[in-house]
Design a protein around this nucleic acid. Structure first.
Length: 275
DNA sequence: GTGCCATGTGAAA
DNA sequence: TTCACCTGGCACC
């Protein structure tokens, strides 16, 4: 599930498995072969993430930028490497570990300048303790675009994907189609703070968990047919009853992404009318 | 077993 | 606006 928490965890795992070690680097699939050979035999110095972007650093100021896209996977395993299955774009091997990258949208050698340009395009990441939410607020408060779209815009907030978007807007009782500039500062702060709470939990647990424990019993009661499968308030629950109020969850496609919300818990914004 | 759909993004048309 | 990426979980047969 590649939202920001996945990349953060992946960077941590890669760092723990490889940092400080000489690694062999190859592209069994071939598409990354030339670049993979450039870092082959070098020391992997650091792995880090920002938003949904991963950077793997090597000696000599060399770095590989990876973006998993929708279904990319980067699996880190202990022990001797097994024969690759499927399309392995990049394989890293050390004495203790190996890692296989498949299905990624981006896997490229980048210069420090290119890496800087990628970072410059990203808004604050709720997983970054140094992140400055003011930068996101400045975008939100001036925008007519829907808050549901702004949250997914990586230049506004880095790392939020479709699941966190749907769930955090539900938790904050914000309608996803409200214009950014209709969101008050306290409500924006609550939204940001909620992401700062939720996303590290995602890192810790290795999956997105958004449901408050006190809502879980109500969830089972409200939607017995779904049994234990219910994991989210609204994400992928279009047409099913809201776990809190029972109203049918709405589903719409916004900018080619599925959008879910409860029309009762997340009421539409009604601008004040004059006269 | 088969087929559909998805947590995302940038390039091509 | 559509396609490419080409994995993998899950609903359905």
């Amino acid at each position: 599930m590649p939202e920001g928490h996945t990349l953060y965890r992946l960077a941590r795992d890669l760092h723990q498995a490889f940092a400080g070690d000489v690694v062999s680097s190859a592209s069994p699939q071939g598409r990354f072969a030339d670049s993979a050979s450039v870092v082959d035999g070098l020391v992997l110095t650091e792995a880090s993430s920002r938003g949904k972007h991963l950077f793997v650093d090597f000696d000599q100021d060399l770095a590989v930028h990876v973006h998993l896209g929708l279904y990319g996977k980067f699996r880190v395993s202990a022990g001797p490497a097994l024969p690759p299955y499927g399309q392995v774009r990049w394989r890293l091997v050390s004495k203790r570990s190996y890692a296989d990258l498949r299905g990624a949208t981006a896997c490229e050698l980048v210069t420090p300048e290119e890496r800087g340009a990628i970072l410059d395009r990203l808004g604050p990441d709720p997983l970054d303790p140094e992140a400055d939410p003011e930068r996101a607020w400045e975008r939100v408060r001036r925008s007519r675009a829907p808050i549901g779209g702004l949250l997914m815009d990586q230049q506004v907030v880095a790392g939020v994907g479709n699941v966190y978007r749907a769930e955090v807007l539900f938790r904050q009782r914000l309608h996803p189609l409200r214009p950014g500039r209709s969101v008050t500062r306290p409500r924006f702060e609550a939204l940001w703070d909620d992401l700062v709470t939720l996303m590290p939990e995602g890192v810790r647990l290795g999956r997105i968990v958004t449901m408050r424990p006190e809502d879980a019993p109500a969830a089972r009661e409200a939607s017995p047919a779904e049994g234990r499968r219910v994991r989210y308030y609204v994400y992928r629950r279009g047409g099913r009853p809201c776990l809190v109020c029972g109203t049918k969850v709405r589903h719409e496609v916004l900018q080619q992404r599925n959008l879910f919300w409860c029309p009762r818990c997340q009421p539409a914004y009604r601008p004040r009318t004059v006269g």
